[in-house]
């Protein structure tokens, strides 16, 4: 199968959906001629024209609000926020409007909108351009939250998100944009709310998502040589959450490490751990569940300090050894 990058997979998903459904359109900062800050929308304005690939002013509240309005009238907007950190500018639109409208209007209104954005760190972009804020959105009923880890997942999940009638926060991993993977040319979708076992194992489960998936797989491969069999579960969608898959893997191995790039304190890992504790998987636990996340610290610009703040293969390995 051909290999394309994560960024190309995202573009392919958008383009295919825009060809398939004329209600789908795309807007955001510098996405047209400039192709977006990460080159994701290269060639799209040439194919679809400026009416469907719309460069917006630098006002997140304005264009996210415009997206909500379009969605309410029956369009299926894809709105790009250049950096996920900038969502803080338009929280009212996302949290109070996009997430609530369907409920506030007693189901008469839908907001079938995808907010795509570049999340995460590891690129030396400092504290205001490196955050992983998924736990902010998973806490808001009415939003779906997706964090793809591979080009294949990115394409299949984005197509599902575009076809979904809810507001979907699609958190792309900026550090992964250049990574390559096998992606079918034909149309396929990956249902939201379905986790994926990226590696089968029997001794310990690593439950993770996003950029940490590949890192966890590398650690699993290393430990395999020592005879430690690590299962890696990629959540893919944080909301809705595939609790069955979490409980199943916890029961299978009895030892769980939850890994995410966002700050460990009050991070999404707490939800994963609670899912296990509240289920009958609790009785199969044979070690305290461990979390690996970023330090409680704004992401430093200095590359050495930045690396120290984020989870690393070493820290994942250490956590696994602690529960073994």
């Amino acid at each position: 199968m051909r290999e394309i990058t994560y960024a190309e997979a995202v573009r392919e998903a958008m383009s295919e959906e825009m060809r398939r459904d004329e209600n789908v359109f795309f807007m955001g900062e510098d996405i047209g001629v400039y192709c977006g800050a990460f080159g994701v929308s290269k060639g799209m304005v040439q194919e679809f024209g400026e009416k469907r690939v719309i460069d917006t002013p630098i006002s997140e509240t304005a264009f996210v609000g415009a997206g909500i309005g379009a969605a309410v009238t029956g369009m299926r907007p894809i709105v790009e926020l250049m950096f996920s950190d900038f969502m803080a500018v338009c929280y009212d639109q996302i949290i109070n409007q996009a997430a609530k409208m369907h409920f506030m209007f007693a189901g008469k209104v839908k907001v079938p909108m995808v907010i795509r954005t570049a999340a995460g760190g590891g690129t030396g972009a400092a504290a205001q351009h490196s955050q992983s804020l998924e736990q902010m959105y998973t806490h808001v009923p009415g939003l779906k939250v997706v964090v793809p880890s591979t080009p294949y997942d990115a394409k299949g999940l984005l197509k599902s998100a575009i076809r979904d009638d809810n507001c979907v926060m699609f958190l792309e991993q900026k550090k992964l944009y250049r990574t390559k993977g096998e992606v079918p040319e034909e149309d396929y979708v990956i249902p939201l709310g379905k986790a994926d076992i990226k590696r089968e194992g029997k001794d310990v489960s690593v439950i993770t998502y996003g950029r940490m998936v590949q890192m966890s797989l590398d650690v699993a491969e290393k430990l395999e040589k020592e005879g430690v069999s690590v299962e890696v579960l990629d959540l893919r969608t944080l909301s809705p959450l595939d609790t069955d898959a979490i409980i199943k893997t916890a029961k299978k191995t009895g030892k769980v490490v939850v890994v995410h790039e966002s700050v460990k304190f009050a991070g999404f890992g707490g939800e994963v751990v609670s899912t296990i504790m509240e289920s009958d998987a609790f009785f199969t636990l044979d070690a305290p569940v461990k979390r690996v996340g970023a330090l409680y610290c704004p992401v430093p610009f200095n590359p050495t300090l930045e690396a120290a703040v984020f989870p690393s293969a070493d820290r994942i390995e250490t956590a696994i050894r602690e529960v073994l």
Binding site: F283, T284, L285, D286, A287
Partner: peptide, 9 residues
Amino acid sequence: IPATPYARE
């Protein structure tokens, strides 16, 4: 006795 939930089961 300190024990994991699995050990107790």
